[in-house]
């Protein structure tokens, strides 16, 4: 007993893309001085955390939105909840739903690509991928990381997922394969500390306690006054961002409405028509 939503037709003419690159700074919001906040996502891994409804998905969608409008960029999406990253599913080379087996396979593929890219870099006497190399940037975005590391699958699968992800996070940085992950509370029982500490950029959305904020940003920041527990529950999208500069900055993540997200996704699909992979990958969705 299923209904099928048919795919809509595509237009004959295809416009030129937005002309963005993943090597461009990614706009994610503004800071307290009203200045725009940009992140250099390609060479850094970002961990966004905070309580539900804090605005993590807003930040993640900003990065996805930038990613899909970029030339030479592939997306690999993990979203057990389906709806947060679902709008980008047709633009992603792999969209992993609540299926940890598929997630593990995807991570293995990514690791093989990463290893091959390093061999290529070695052969070309290089240590880091640059914008002029013509290589695609493979952006891996994981929403609700805890679902894969604690809920779905068996203990062994969860550990394997965490281990593979740790490999990708540690390897991906210099070969154009950054990882953006979001979760509610990245404590050691949810995500291994060894994995958490590999994320260079941290965004702490509202937390209920000083301790939770410290877990996200790192020990000691709450004592210095940088605690995400002082963010008002009604102020969605406000966060402390620990990125360049070494000090956490209070930011407000830009917000994309559902309409904006689907408009961007539609436009990106339109411009990507010649290069995008066709057919919906297996998300592990139960019929």
């Amino acid at each position: 007993m299923t209904t099928t939503i048919p795919a809509t037709t595509t237009a004959a003419a295809v416009p030129v893309g937005a002309g963005l690159s993943m090597f461009d700074p990614v706009f994610i919001g503004i800071d307290e001085f009203g200045q725009p906040v940009y992140l250099d996502v390609v060479y850094h891994n970002l961990l966004a955390a905070g309580e539900p409804g804090g605005g993590k998905s807003g930040l993640v969608n900003n990065i996805c939105g930038h990613g899909v409008l970029c030339d030479n960029t592939r997306l690999v999406l993990f979203d057990a909840k389906l709806v947060e990253l679902g709008p980008w599913r047709d633009l992603a080379d792999a969209f992993v739903g609540p299926d940890i087996d598929y997630g593990i396979d995807t991570l293995r593929r990514l690791l093989v690509v990463a290893t091959n890219r390093y061999t290529w870099l070695l052969a070309n006497r290089r240590r880091k991928l640059g914008p002029d190399d013509g290589m695609t940037v493979i952006l891996t975005v994981i929403d609700e990381l805890a679902m894969y590391s604690t809920v779905l699958g068996s203990k062994a699968q969860q550990e394997e997922f965490s281990t593979l992800l740790r490999g990708l996070v540690s390897l991906g940085r210099a070969c154009g394969m950054p990882v953006v992950a979001a979760t509610q509370r990245p404590s050691w029982d949810i995500i291994p500390a060894s994995l958490r500490d590999l994320f260079g950029y941290r965004a702490a959305f509202r937390c209920t306690s000083l301790n939770s904020s410290n877990i996200i940003l790192g020990q000691g920041w709450a004592e210095q006054g940088y605690t995400a527990s002082d963010i008002a529950p009604t102020n969605q999208g406000a966060a402390y961002l620990l990125a360049e500069g070494g000090m956490p900055r209070r930011i407000k993540a830009a917000y994309l409405t559902d309409t904006d997200i689907y408009n961007i996704a539609d436009y990106a699909a339109w411009t990507r028509t010649p290069t995008r992979t066709t057919g919906l990958p297996d998300m592990g969705l139960a019929a």
Partner: peptide, 13 residues
């Protein structure tokens, strides 16, 4: 831009 969405099987339960 024209809407683009791959066919999705939606459970009825």
């Amino acid at each position: 831009a024209p809407a683009s969405a791959s066919p999705l099987t939606v459970p009825t339960a």
